[in-house]
Amino acid sequence: MHLFAYLHVALTTRLAELRRDGERGDSPVPTAVIIFGLVAAAVIVTGLVATKARGWMDAIPDPAP
C-alpha cells in the first residue's frame, strides 16, 4: 500500500511541476509552415533543373546514320 501512495504522490507532484512550467516548446504550426515553404522551394528548384536538363539534352544532335 505504501508503494501506491508513493507513486500517487510522485505522479501528482510531477504533474504539478509540468503545469507550472509555462514553456513547453514551439507550436507545430510554425514548423509546418516552414516545412511547407521548404517543400515548395524544392519543387520549384527541381522543376527548373529538370527544364534546364531537358533543354540541354534536346540540344544534343541525333547520331549520324
Score class of each variant (00 low, 15 high):
Ile44Tyr: 13
Ala50Met: 00
Ser27Gln: 01
Ile60Arg: 09
Trp56Cys: 05
Ile60Tyr: 12
Ser27Lys: 03
Arg14Phe: 11
Ala40Phe: 08
Asp58Phe: 11
Ala59Asn: 07
Pro65Gln: 08
Arg54Gln: 10
Leu15Asn: 07
Ala32Arg: 03
Thr12Gln: 13
Arg19Met: 09
Leu7Lys: 10
Met57Ile: 14
Thr46Met: 11
Thr46Lys: 11
Leu7Trp: 10
Phe4Arg: 09
Ala41Glu: 06
Val33Asp: 03
Val9Pro: 06
Arg54Gly: 05
Pro63Gln: 09
Pro28Tyr: 04
Gly37Lys: 10
Ile34Arg: 13
Ala59Val: 01
Thr46His: 10
Ile44Phe: 13
Val43Phe: 14
Leu7Gly: 06
Thr51Phe: 05
Tyr6Asn: 11
Trp56Leu: 13
Leu18Asn: 11
Gly47Gln: 01
Thr12Pro: 02
Arg19Gly: 13
Ser27Arg: 07
Gly22Pro: 13
Leu7Cys: 09
Val43Met: 11
Val9Trp: 15
Met57Gln: 09
Gly47Tyr: 00
Arg54Val: 09
Gly25Asp: 03
Gly47His: 01
Leu3Ala: 15
Ala64Asp: 15
Asp58Leu: 14
Gly37Pro: 03
Phe4Val: 06
Leu38Gly: 11
His8Ile: 00
Val43Trp: 11
Ala50Ser: 04
Thr12Arg: 12
Ala5Pro: 00
Pro61Gln: 04
Gly37Trp: 03
Met1Gly: 14
Pro61Lys: 05
Pro65Asp: 06
Ala64Lys: 07
Arg20Ala: 15
Gly37Gln: 12
Val29Tyr: 00
Ala53Met: 09
Pro63Ile: 00
Val29Asp: 09
Ala10Trp: 07
Val33Asn: 04
Ala42Thr: 07
His2Pro: 05
Ala50Phe: 00
Leu7Met: 14
Leu18Thr: 05
Ala5Leu: 13
Leu11Ser: 12
Val33Met: 09
Val43Leu: 14
Met57Ser: 10
Thr31His: 15
Leu38Thr: 00
Thr51Glu: 08
Ile44His: 07
Arg19Val: 01
Glu17Ala: 15
Ala16Pro: 02
Arg54Ala: 12
Leu11Trp: 04
Asp21Tyr: 04
Pro63Thr: 00
Asp58Tyr: 13
Ala64Leu: 13
Ala64Ser: 13
Phe36Met: 07
Val43Pro: 02
Leu11Thr: 08
Ala32Met: 10
Ala53Trp: 06
Ala16Met: 09
Gly22Lys: 15
Arg24Trp: 08
Glu17Arg: 13
Leu11His: 05
Pro61Ile: 02
Gly37Arg: 06
Thr46Pro: 03
Arg14Asp: 12
Val33Glu: 11
Ala16Trp: 07
Ala32Tyr: 06
Leu3Arg: 14
Leu38Trp: 04
Thr12Leu: 10
His2Cys: 01
Pro65Val: 01
Gly22Ser: 15
Gly25Val: 01
Val49Trp: 00
Gly55Ile: 03
